[in-house]
Amino acid sequence: MDVLVTGGTGRLGGHLVPRLRDAGHAVRQMSRRGTGPGGVRGDLATGFDLRTALAGAEVVVHTASDPRGDPWQVDVAGTRRLVEAVDRDRLRHLVYVSIVGVDRIPFGYYRAKFAAEQVLLASGLPVTLLRVTQFHDFVDELLSAARRGPVLPVPMGWRVQPVDVVEVAGHLVDVVAGPPAGAVVEYGGPEDLTVAELARAWAGARAPGAHVVATPVPGRMSSAVRDGAALPGGGARGRRSYAEHLRA
Rank of each mutant, 00 (worst) to 15 (best):
G7E: 09
E244Q: 14
R80C: 11
G204I: 00
T52I: 11
A112R: 01
V86I: 14
E191T: 00
T63K: 00
V173D: 07
G13F: 03
R21V: 15
A210T: 10
D87R: 05
P216N: 13
V61G: 09
L54S: 13
V173I: 05
G204C: 00
V132Y: 01
V74Y: 05
A196F: 03
P218M: 10
L125G: 09
V5M: 04
G189C: 05
R32N: 13
V154C: 06
S223G: 15
T63P: 01
R41T: 13
T133Q: 06
A177R: 10
G234A: 14
L91V: 14
A112Y: 06
A122K: 09
V212C: 05
V154R: 02
P216D: 15
V139A: 07
R148M: 15
S222V: 12
R200W: 02
L193Y: 02
V61F: 11
V95D: 05
L198D: 08
A224Q: 08
M221W: 09
T128A: 07
R206K: 10
T194V: 04
Y109N: 08
A26S: 15
G189H: 03
R206V: 09
P18R: 02
L50M: 10
R148V: 15
D43W: 03
R88I: 15
D22Q: 12
S223R: 14
H211I: 13
V165E: 11
V59F: 08
Y96I: 00
V160D: 01
G36R: 02
F107E: 14
T194W: 06
G56I: 13
V163A: 02
R90N: 13
V76D: 11
R11F: 08
D70C: 00
R220P: 15
V60I: 12
T133C: 04
R147L: 15
T194E: 12
A243I: 02
H171A: 07
A55C: 13
L246C: 04
M1D: 10
G233D: 14
G14Q: 09
R206L: 07
V76S: 08
E58A: 12
S65K: 00
A243V: 14
V151Y: 13
Q73S: 13
V95C: 06
V212L: 02
V173P: 03
L172S: 07
L12V: 04
G47N: 13
V160F: 12
M1H: 05
L120V: 13
R237D: 14
V163M: 04
R81Y: 15
Y242T: 00
L121A: 14
D89E: 15
R19W: 06
V76K: 02
P162R: 00
W202Y: 12
L143V: 11
T215W: 15
D49Y: 06
R88H: 15
G178H: 02
